[in-house]
Computed example of a mutant assay.
Amino acid sequence: MIYVIRNSHEYGPYDESVVAGYVEQGILLAHDKARDAVTGREATVMELLKARGYHPQVSHKGSLGEQLRAIGSEFIFPRDDMARHHWLDDKRLLILAVVGLSLSVLMLLPIGGLLVFYAISLYFAVVWGLFFYVFFRSRQVNVKTTVSVFFLTQIAVFIIFSGLSHLNFFYFFTQLAFPLNIVGYVLGVGLTEEFVKMVPLLFLIRRAREPLLPQTLVYYGLMSGIAFGVFEGVEYQTTVNVQADYTTAFFLNVARLTSLPFLHALWCGICGYFVGFAHLYPRYRKSLYALALALPALLHGLYDSFAGVAYLVSLGVAFVSVLLLMTYLSKSNSFRDKLRR
Score class of each variant (00 low, 15 high):
residue 2 I to P: 03
residue 2 I to D: 00
residue 3 Y to A: 01
residue 8 S to T: 14
residue 14 Y to D: 12
residue 15 D to G: 13
residue 15 D to A: 14
residue 19 V to L: 00
residue 23 V to L: 06
residue 23 V to P: 00
residue 27 I to C: 03
residue 30 A to M: 11
residue 35 R to Y: 07
residue 36 D to C: 02
residue 36 D to V: 01
residue 39 T to I: 08
residue 49 L to M: 09
residue 51 A to S: 11
residue 58 V to M: 14
residue 60 H to I: 15
residue 61 K to L: 09
residue 62 G to R: 03
residue 73 S to P: 10
residue 80 D to H: 11
residue 88 L to T: 15
residue 106 L to S: 08
residue 113 G to Q: 04
residue 116 V to Y: 07
residue 120 I to L: 05
residue 124 F to P: 07
residue 135 F to A: 11
residue 139 R to P: 10
residue 141 V to P: 02
residue 143 V to L: 13
residue 149 V to A: 09
residue 151 F to S: 08
residue 153 T to K: 07
residue 155 I to G: 05
residue 165 S to A: 14
residue 204 L to F: 04
residue 206 R to T: 15
residue 209 R to F: 05
residue 212 L to R: 00
residue 218 V to T: 02
residue 228 F to L: 07
residue 230 V to Q: 03
residue 239 T to M: 04
residue 244 A to F: 13
residue 246 Y to F: 12
residue 253 N to C: 03
residue 263 L to W: 00
residue 266 L to A: 05
residue 276 G to S: 01
residue 278 A to M: 01
residue 283 R to C: 06
residue 283 R to L: 07
residue 285 R to P: 10
residue 285 R to V: 12
residue 289 Y to V: 14
residue 290 A to Y: 08
residue 301 G to C: 01
residue 310 A to S: 14
residue 311 Y to L: 13
residue 316 G to T: 04
residue 316 G to E: 02
residue 323 L to G: 06
residue 325 L to P: 06
